[in-house]
Design a protein around this nucleic acid. Structure first.
Lengths: 116, 116
DNA sequence: TTGATACATTCCTGTATGGGAATATGATTC
DNA sequence: GAATCATATTCCCATACAGGAATGTATCAA
């Protein structure tokens, strides 16, 4: 088996820096393709191709507006990434390390009452 | 140009589900390879290869212990992912959406300062 | 030394990329 | 209908994977 398709999920789609740039631009509001082309300094076909990947993983939506196609961010698609990486906050944040310690303390003190 | 190497950065390394699993396991504490092999149900060479990728992007560290090699998570490497995706929280959190609305209001009230 | 254990590396292969270039499609205007 | 603008798709190609199988390397045991 080869590497998973870029369209396999948000993780793969977002591994490409250009696609993250596109999402970053769309985070400020919807934009037609030519607008993205200008701001990215990429050729139009490559932008369209990146947008296709983002569309396939649900990270963007399209809307027709005359002869333009207006792309809009769909942040929900990024949530799995956020949720996964959030579990690692405690490994770099002192604040969270200490929070962790506090929670451990509380758990211990609470003793036997808790579920999950 | 082809797709970026999996070792290009944490985003690419973590796009592979198996590697995320490995990190998840190491989040509970350091482990030797054979331990990971058992828990993942993968062949040993594939696990070693995944670990190599994770090592190259700095997501794990190794330590020799007798004939075993003990791998440990290095969460710092995941921080760029966290920082990037964190900017999108407002797109799925109602709390943040409302904050956004408030900020838009403020911007509008501030009046005529805008370009574009 | 021999054998076994624990990992890492190499070779092979089908598959999929991302960019460049060219072309196709669709809407708008004249 | 022709010319044009805005996007999408296709073709070409060098590159790089991920898994399977086989092999290399270091450590420990007897």
């Amino acid at each position: 088996m080869a590497r998973a398709a870029t369209t396999a999920d948000a993780f793969n789609a977002v591994a490409e820096p250009r696609r993250r740039e596109i999402l970053d631009l769309l985070a400020d509001g919807e934009r037609p393709v030519n607008d993205l082309v200008r701001r990215l300094g990429l050729a139009q076909p490559q932008v369209s191709k990146h947008l296709r990947v983002l569309r396939e993983v649900g990270a963007v939506d399209v809307r027709d507006h005359g002869r333009q196609r207006v792309y809009r961010l769909n942040g929900d698609a990024l949530r799995p990434i956020h949720d996964w990486v959030k579990g690692y906050e405690r490994f770099w944040s002192e604040r969270f390390e200490r929070l962790d310690a506090v929670l451990d303390e509380l758990k211990k003190e609470e003793g036997d009452g808790g579920d999950e």
